[in-house]
Simulated assay, not measured.
Amino acid sequence: MPLQQHIRTGRFLILLLVLPFTMSCWYFGTFKDAPGATTRVGASSSKAQTTAYRTNGRLRTNAGTAYVGHLVANTKAGWATPSQYCLENGLLYKGADYRLGRTNVFLQGPIPKGAINSAVIVYGTRVKGLDRKLKESGPCPPPEEDHTPQMRSDWTSDEADRNGHTTRARLAETVYIEATRIEPLPLVTATPMETTGRNLYKKNTVLKVTNVFDRPLPSNVEFAFYYEGGSGKPMPKFEPQDLGELSPGESKLFLAPIPQKTSRRSRTNKWVFRGYRLKGKIGDVELNLLITL
């Protein structure tokens, strides 16, 4: 075979060997950041974010300032949970959509499923100056006549009256939570149970308190039964229970009455069991959970 033909044949063989390698490099270099790869990175980031708040499945108590409480949705006409305010200039302003106990909460993004009307843990910071979060929405509606006698302070919000009327100065002194994360918190479960025996209720509620955190729940954390009633204007009453210190994952059971929404007319002066309160602190987590069953 002539030399030139050998050279041409050799070049062709080299080309056949090099071309697939070159194409593979181009392919992986071009598509390594394709949507499929991005999805995998996102999943890893989400997992890493979850890990940042948990240790071996338990909530970390040093993952940043956090608050435990009852998360509810604000409403336009809510006495204690207003979502809008009428200010002294005659204009109506939109506020927060949610609140933790008595404190308004602002969260960028959707609320997790199952979080509304339940116990949650909210990661974030308390900020003073609710007036800075308001958005004007139009003129104030006509005022309503108030015939409610003996209003209790906890029947209305901290920042306005029962009709949502307030001032910018008052809102400037009101604290809210700028939240970064919200999670449902299965800290206490309630189960109905029937029992018989001396000094026992015929129908009971079993309250199970479980330490879902990564460190022992201190003995100075208060767990109390919540009652409403008394003579005259109904008032709240709390009966502390012997919770003690709970190790991570440990639970303790308490026997309570069946909760009643309202007392009977013949028992207006009686104390009626309504729910429970858990109050205290564990690490960077502040507990102030009041639940009406």
Rank of each mutant, 00 (worst) to 15 (best):
M1H: 09
A119L: 10
P139W: 01
P35C: 02
R99W: 06
M193R: 09
V122N: 00
G57K: 00
E159S: 15
K252G: 06
T196Y: 07
A48I: 12
K252T: 15
H165P: 11
A256S: 05
K281A: 14
V18K: 00
L246S: 07
P257M: 04
R58L: 11
V41C: 12
E228F: 09
L278G: 05
H147S: 12
A63R: 00
D158S: 15
F225C: 13
S24Q: 12
S46K: 14
R277Q: 13
S83T: 07
Q108P: 01
G78N: 01
H165F: 13
L87Y: 00
M1T: 09
F31D: 06
F254M: 05
S247K: 14
K32Y: 12
M23P: 06
G64E: 02
L246V: 13
L19A: 11
R126C: 14
K237D: 14
K233Y: 09
R267M: 10
Q260H: 14
T65R: 10
A179E: 08
G69T: 00
R198M: 06
Y27E: 11
V209P: 02
V206Q: 08
I282W: 02
L243P: 02
A96D: 02
V221G: 07
G95H: 01
L217P: 04
K279T: 15
V209W: 00
M193H: 09
K94M: 05
D97E: 13
R198S: 12
T189V: 10
V188E: 07
S247W: 10
V120K: 01
L290Q: 15
Y67I: 00
